[in-house]
Design a protein around this nucleic acid. Structure first.
Lengths: 252, 252
DNA sequence: AACCCCGATTGATATGCATCAAGGCGCAAT
DNA sequence: ATTGCGCCTTGATGCATATCAATCGGGGTT
């Protein structure tokens, strides 16, 4: 009687080789045969929903996860309910890399909206990457990219002011979405102002005021979660150089 | 007439298998034969001196570097002479991991004091790690550890106040030095106050005031670069929980 | 020994952002 | 439609830390 949506999901063949994200994800640079081998160890479950966890801090590390559609936030829960948001993860991005070393998750990963996720059992993955040099290489690159990205965040949190931080956040969202074939100037944010502020090291109120200011300046048009970037160029330069409005440089 | 110090350095056989750092570095968990194979691709040069660069931002990526003795700082030079210090690297720590992805160095690495450095040509390393599973595993772990460490720094810069930052810095130095068999409570800092402040996202003056305060409180004894931690336990708890002196939690 | 130089310290002041407080508004449940 | 509840926005105030300014002092040089 009621159509079960699950059916269509189960019957569609979801394979790495058909995935539009394969150029962002692990298969990059691999032969079709090797992609099949990778494909054979990847698990795909039914879609996860807002609030679901991929894993929680303290759990044993077993798998890496790749966002296929939707978005995920990672965060370190600290004592007393406070938390530090570590990142927001869009389609094609890998989650769980920080857990390899200790063989345990130090952060939690929570789904922000209905999302499809690929699970990659790590032990099997390691065996496979030993026998596929280009897979090992791609994995090294992905780990390295994560480190570069973290370094950018350190610069952001260490040196940039509130305005530059939010501009950098919006510019980053824009860039990442456009790489996935979506509009770089018109998108919906799946996270709350509170989460954005937490991520950027700012209070919610500051984030809100900045959205208002950017809108007043004609940089963006904002309606709740819906963001239109009207002047991407200015936004990017705000995000970058910081000294745009003040020729003095930070000495620290 | 003048004795050349270089001689003794050249004649000593410096091999991974004799290295006291092998349990921190790549050889961890490898068989003696495989360590020899790794050893054969590692290059060792004469000691580098304060101010020397291992590499500079923008250079082509060729090798990873491991600190054997001494210390190195990595930083991103920004326009106009400003810089963000990304990290201080002690013996056993690997430098250059962030350059794998783009095949180019995005940061520079400068030696802080006379140091011995191992160079590992990355292309050969990758070939080797394909054929030595435990080497590949150790490399994944090292990359992952770097990511975890960066996440801790994000927490530090995003949520901690000045006091907690400096306490975390000192506690971290203490822990890392003791892992290398040195005193956890008595050491010399090879970096300036300015560099510490830059790293922690603080002004030099703030760092200086905090050293004075910590000393007044009997936590440390400081004389220029020489630091003695008198109350390591309190220092560590200051570094961690943050809420020690203030029961309110940060909401952002 | 006198001098210089640069990093470190100390004090005074300024400011960016957090915090506190009070609505406003979209949206889901009734 | 009405209510209620989060989330967001806006305004007022305070504080931690940056910034500005002056001096100190250790270590190398002459």
């Amino acid at each position: 009687m009621t159509q079960r949506k699950v059916i269509s999901f189960e019957t569609i063949r979801v394979a790495c080789k058909n995935c539009t994200l394969s150029q962002l994800c692990l298969p990059m640079g691999m032969s079709p045969e090797d992609v099949d081998r990778l494909d054979s160890i990847v698990k795909r479950s039914r879609p996860l929903h807002r609030g679901d966890h991929l894993f929680r801090s303290g759990e044993r590390f077993r798998s890496l996860y790749v966002v296929k559609t939707g978005s995920v936030k990672t965060y370190t829960p600290s004592e007393e309910g406070g938390e530090q948001v570590l990142g927001f993860h869009l389609p094609g991005e890998i989650i769980g890399l920080d857990a390899i070393d200790q063989d345990m998750h130090a952060c939690s990963a929570k789904v922000l909206e209905t999302s499809a996720i690929c699970e990659i059992p790590f032990q099997r993955f390691e065996e496979l990457s030993s026998s596929i040099p280009s897979l090992q290489h791609q994995m090294f690159r992905l780990l390295s990219k994560e480190i570069s990205h973290d370094a950018e965040m350190l610069l952001l949190l260490g040196k940039k002011n509130a305005e530059e931080r939010l501009a950098a956040f919006l510019a980053s969202m824009s860039k990442r979405l456009s790489k996935r074939g979506l509009s770089p100037t018109d998108f919906y944010l799946s996270m709350s102002r509170h989460e954005i502020g937490n991520y950027l090291g700012l209070a919610v109120e500051t984030v809100s005021r900045l959205f208002t200011r950017f809108q007043d300046e004609g940089l963006v048009k904002v309606d709740r979660k819906h963001v239109e970037i009207l002047d991407l160029h200015t936004m990017e330069s705000l995000a970058g150089v910081a000294q745009a409005m003040d020729s003095r440089q930070h000495s620290n």
